[in-house]
Amino acid sequence: MELLYSNILPLGCDDDERTIVGCFKEQMKNSDRVEIAVGYTSNASLNELDALIDRYAIKKICLTIGMYYIEGMPERSYHTALRVNQHWKASGIGEIRIVKPFKYHGKLFCFYKNEKPFSAIIGSANLGVIKLEATNRRQYEISALTINETEVAEIAFHIEQLKTSICSGNISDIKGMPLIRETNTSLDGIELVTAVPQSSVEFYKNCKTYVSFFLKLKVPRSVDRHIDDGKHYTKSNINVCYAAPRNKRKSRDWYETQLTVGSDIYRMEGYPNKNEPFFVVTDDGYWFKAHTTSDNNKQFSAVGDELIMGRWLKGRLVAAGIVKHVNDTALDADRLGMITEEMLEEYGCDSLLFKKTGQTALDEKGTDLDVWMLSFVSGNDYER
């Protein structure tokens, strides 16, 4: 057994000591198959592992994650794990599995060559040790490398037991695992928007529903994102930022969004009247004034700033790791920032739930306005 260390001052590694991450990469370099079982991962470590698999031409890989089915998984890591899992499965090299019946807190890394395990790392380090971030940069871990055949075989057998169907399943088949929503920072410090405590969100969520509507988000499929006929919703609604700029010298802001409501909704009894403002409280804790405008009051937007709705809606997708913010839409030739059906499918929701709470609040002029709740969550996350 050889001890492996974190290289963190004042306990920096001596010349004859190896770091955990250094040993991990060395073992991978000598392997053609890697089996990993850990309690936790991180978004960065998942991407790093995927890159290392390609770099070292690993032929077979399985990552089993043990704590999230019961505790909940951060949504950014979840969506990254789904993409990595899909990549590995499509390449025929492996998968990512989730432990279901209990919280598994082990940290094991087993390395194979020609179908025979030859070394293993065991200790306190989760997968995050292979790609340090601000959250774990000063977190000291200690592990050990073993090349003892009996010990390595026992660790390999244990990991194989975890991979059986009674213990775990492929992440794409897992249903009911709670997701921990990431914080949307796109509205921080924005004028006309106020953050409200979670207790207030729960209050409005639990209010009696006087009337509610599902507002379908109209977006293209990925294959259609380059349609340029001037009529298609690749250049309208949520993706209006890709339409011709109002000022030829300046491209549209990526957050510019028009939420267009269908006639089947705005003609329903109880839908807000045109140009009559109301307050919106969002399911993630933001408060702003909104209204319906345009012909047949089909446009739904925030009052005073046309970017607020986009910052809320697209900011959620950015926080979840599904799309990246585009600084200049005119330079996004591949339209990677265009919101598509596939993105909404990955997020798990293609509609907004718009609910009248029956509550009112005074605006800055002392006018009593209705309070509506706006939610961007899947049906599993929100009960009407």
Rank of each mutant, 00 (worst) to 15 (best):
L4A: 04
L4W: 10
S6G: 06
N7P: 04
I8N: 09
L11K: 10
L11S: 03
C13S: 11
E17W: 14
R18F: 12
G22R: 10
K25T: 09
Q27Y: 05
Q27D: 11
N30R: 14
R33K: 15
V34F: 05
Y40A: 11
S42L: 05
N47F: 06
E48S: 14
A51W: 03
L52C: 10
Y56W: 07
I58M: 05
K59A: 13
K59Y: 05
K60T: 15
T64K: 07
G66S: 07
Y68T: 01
G72W: 05
P74G: 10
R76Q: 15
H87P: 01
W88Y: 13
S91D: 13
I93E: 11
I96A: 11
I98H: 07
K103C: 10
G106L: 03
G106C: 03
K107N: 12
L108A: 02
L108R: 08
F111D: 01
Y112P: 00
N114H: 08
K116R: 09
P117E: 06
S119E: 03
S119G: 05
A120Q: 06
I121Y: 08
I122V: 12
N126P: 12
G128C: 13
V129L: 09
E133K: 09
N136V: 15
R138H: 13
E141S: 07
V152K: 00
E154N: 07
F157I: 00
F157Y: 05
I159H: 04
L162H: 00
S165Q: 00
I166P: 00
I171Q: 00
P178T: 13
D188L: 12
E191D: 12
T194R: 10
Q198M: 14
S199A: 05
V201N: 03
K205V: 03
C207Y: 05
F213E: 00
F214V: 02
L215G: 04
L215Y: 04
L217R: 00
V219Y: 01
D224M: 02
N237L: 07
I238N: 05
Y242H: 07
A243Y: 04
D253T: 02
W254E: 06
E256G: 03
Q258P: 00
L259S: 04
L259M: 02
D264T: 15
P272C: 08
F279C: 12
V280I: 13
D283F: 01
G285M: 02
Y286W: 14
K289A: 06
H291V: 03
S294D: 14
D295L: 13
D295K: 02
N297L: 04
K298A: 07
K298Y: 07
A302L: 11
A302M: 12
V303W: 14
V303H: 13
G310Y: 10
K314A: 14
G321F: 11
V323K: 09
V323L: 09
H325R: 15
V326W: 12
V326L: 14
D328N: 15
T329F: 09
T329E: 12
L336I: 07
E341G: 08
M343R: 05
L344W: 11
E345R: 02
E346G: 08
Y347W: 06
S351R: 12
F354S: 02
K355F: 00
K355R: 06
K356D: 14
G358L: 06
T360W: 11
L362A: 13
D368L: 14
D368K: 11
V371G: 14
S378Q: 01
G379F: 06
N380I: 01
Y382P: 01
E383F: 04
E383Y: 08
